[in-house]
Design a protein around this nucleic acid. Structure first.
Lengths: 229, 229
DNA sequence: TCAAAAGTGTTCCGCTTACACCCATGC
DNA sequence: GCATGGGTGTAAGCGGAACACTTTTGA
């Protein structure tokens, strides 16, 4: 850490947040449509500049709230990594710190921010062309999510407080993109001790299902071995 | 990505590189002693400012070479994550992007940079007090290394081009901090198909040992299941 | 010939996998 | 009463863990 270079030579620093949730079309990502050039009208990951006295985490949460209306209480926000190729923004040098936000319930009132015409959910399997290097960033986020889901309790960030075993299994299948045997899944999942039986039932059109809750204390046990190798 | 804030309100951006290698005292980290305040005379992770037209990766490799004399051909350089708490540098707002560099051979001529009085290797189990938030950054790097070593071919970044099975086992034991059964290790390791028998032997004071080389093509196979769950 | 490190097989157990039927409810 | 999703058990095989002795070399 030597001389501070000339003030004019500092890159701008932004945060971009990849917002992921489970929707009707499987794993979905929230994108905003750009109002102004460059990449006008194209879809992009929501984000914005970091204020001078604000931590990166705080900036990510603030921008998420401003651009989409999602509060950090509804989401699991985590840093992904920084992206800083010199030509990634055609206007000027911008280093961005990417975040992921896993959203528990998808029924959130989205609101468009000042520079985004609108926000919308897209299936990760049917993405539009994205602005800047946002496709790279999104790929990186999905890669990490698929890893985290297997080796950590990340999956619970995509589910509401209580959920049925079938919902949990669907969450795994949709994020990992594979099928899981129902009986093996239930036995293994319950054996981890990560689930608490709420003794409640989810009524529906058919036989009601037991509702479970994730036991936070179980986090260390889950990290020991991957759930689905 | 809205208005670019005033130029004066931009954070400085630095890269800091955690250089790790296997030495006589197990896993060791390269630190530099600070010449000037703040934290004068304390030890710190080597790093410096990112140039305006330089990618983050390039900055990390450049600083590594400048401050320690290690070329990126001798090391596996990878981004860790960004650290950006507003008060992490008492002088001004600095966002740093941390990198890890795994060094293959420890017999490298270290040279001190302009602002570092000297550079030296420290066992990760006997660290001095570190400047800034560098202890946090280092913990984060070690945590990730221990993870990567189990789920990726990262361990080979800490070994020379050819190595014996015992050296490979020691590398695992020293980074993971646990003992591994020799016979099980050899059987399992050879079964991965990740090693190529060079047909050479390492002569020593005792029975010579076969030398192996890591087969790059085997990377996907290694990622499927952790080597040491 | 001795010290030191290299190298080698087998057994047991637990976990994973594959697989098919009955149950409870709403309509 | 039927359609729909919820819920359950068992047998076979693979992979992981535990464990001790022989071999080769240099000094």
């Amino acid at each position: 850490v030597r001389q501070d270079p000339n003030q004019n030579l500092r890159p701008s620093v932004t945060v971009d947040t990849i917002v992921l949730a489970l929707g009707e079309r499987g794993l979905e990502v929230l994108l905003v449509q750009r109002r102004y050039p460059p990449f006008q009208d194209m879809w992009a990951i929501p984000g914005g500049f970091v204020e001078i006295d604000e931590s990166l985490d705080a900036a990510a949460r603030r921008e998420l709230a401003e651009e989409t209306g999602i509060s950090d209480l509804q989401a699991t926000v985590e840093q992904l990594r920084a992206f800083g190729a010199p030509e990634r923004d055609p206007r000027t040098r911008v280093v961005t710190v990417a975040y992921t936000a896993l959203v528990r319930a998808r029924d959130i009132a989205l609101r468009a921010g000042s520079d985004a015409a609108q926000a919308a959910w897209f299936s990760v399997d049917a993405l539009p062309e994205l602005a800047f290097d946002h496709e790279t960033i999104l790929s990186c986020a999905l890669l990490r999510l698929r890893h985290q889901v297997r080796y950590s309790p990340a999956i619970f960030g995509l589910l509401p407080d209580t959920f049925t075993l079938t919902e949990l299994q669907n969450a795994f299948e949709q994020t990992l993109g594979c099928e899981i045997d129902k009986r093996n899944f239930r036995r293994k999942m319950l054996a981890t001790g990560a689930l608490e039986d709420t003794r409640d039932l989810r009524a529906g059109n058919h036989r009601p299902a037991r509702l479970y809750r994730y036991r936070q204390e179980a986090a260390p046990h889950l990290q020991a071995r991957p759930l689905f190798p």
